[in-house]
Nucleic acid binder design. Structure first.
Lengths: 201, 201
DNA sequence: CGGCGTTTTGAGAGAGCTCAACATCGGTGG
DNA sequence: CCACCGATGTTGAGCTCTCTCAAAACGCCG
């Protein structure tokens, strides 16, 4: 889902690996919060069950994502965490983490920085979702994901993955890429997309 | 835009108010990062300009939103901040903020907690945007914004505001609310929407 | 009463989703 | 080496849903 900004190495030693099968429950709402998790493999669904018993998904976390950061500052979890597909996660016990933060302020700062960076990223993604047309979304994504040269975008997964990331069906994405290519906005090679310089009207 | 989780009171005294008119620039990419801003009135647009000179909007911050939290951990800003509509913002100088965090770890913790909470909120919002149908979005929003009773949702602005918040046109929202009401899913009064108990099939 | 913004309803069109079929590419095993 | 298989990539056609543009009813305030 996300590229996964790593937790500082100093706190990684405090973590515990855990493997889970689909359907298992990582934690439930109102369970005592023992820490946050980093998803390494698989998917975890965070959801809440309403008065009618229907569940509402808050978020689906994939490899590289953190789960329940807020549990660090709360005695209990605020939603259920269910394993969607066989997963490997890493538990960072909150006690150890908070102690480490107190012991080493730079670790705390690194964690804050990580949260802040992820916030930025999410806001940008949300902004992207406000764009309705497929081409606008694609261009938005491309414009913000170029290499240093400002024109080349390296694809890190399949086109289907990209489609999911930007909230389009893969068919729509294929067609949009074709249109953009035909229009001369982009050029494609095996694993990259290049933005071609547009004349300034 | 958001409800606006406040910064801890202890750091508020470190802040400086500033008023800006539409079109003014709060900061530019690569400017020295002097701190983060809290938007109190108006809107700030965060954007980046690509190689072709076209700007891409990363985020639009409104009252209650923080801007450039990541600047705390970076020597320079990473995008432009332009005033969209006459605004009042509050600058929290990073030096003072970081010093305060070091002096009082609980302030640091409170800040972290705030970031974590906002992350949760944003992820949920992004999840909501993955729902394509208007009714699904509305129900998602309602299910997650009930009062303690789990059934009543208090509207804090106009319906138009709500429409913008969940990413629909106001027309679509009106029609959807009508449908849900006709279907018996919700009931409406002046400033509230109530979820009516659904029979469990 | 007149004006302004919200609420509401109507009609039409476009864009992406859905379903479906087919091509392509790697990997696997006979 | 070739047949097979699954997943990705690609294209087609129809449909639904929301957006857009328009207009009218409503409520609030000066």
């Amino acid at each position: 889902m996300s590229e996964g900004s790593r937790l500082p190495a100093s706190v990684r030693t405090l973590s515990v690996e855990r493997r889970l099968e689909r359907g298992e429950v990582l934690f439930r709402k109102d369970d005592t919060a023992i820490g946050l998790y980093a998803v390494e493999v698989g998917h975890i669904s965070l959801c809440r069950v309403d008065a009618n018993g229907r569940e509402t998904i808050l978020h689906t976390a994939g490899p590289g994502d953190l789960v329940a950061e807020a549990s660090l500052f709360s005695p209990r979890y605020h939603c259920d965490a269910v394993v969607l597909s066989d997963a490997r996660v890493r538990l960072y016990p909150k006690k150890a983490l908070l102690a480490e933060f107190k012991r080493d302020p730079s670790a705390a700062e690194a964690f804050m920085a990580m949260l802040a960076r992820e916030l930025m990223d999410l806001r940008t993604r949300l902004e992207q979702r406000n764009l309705r047309s497929a081409s606008a979304r694609v261009e938005h994504h491309l414009a913000l994901n170029t290499e240093a040269d400002g024109r080349t975008v390296t694809l890190h997964g399949t086109i289907k993955d990209l489609a999911a990331e930007i909230g389009l069906t893969h068919e729509a994405l294929y067609r949009t890429l074709n249109k953009l290519q035909a229009a001369g906005t982009i050029a494609r090679t095996k694993g990259t997309i290049t933005l071609t310089k547009k004349p300034d009207v």
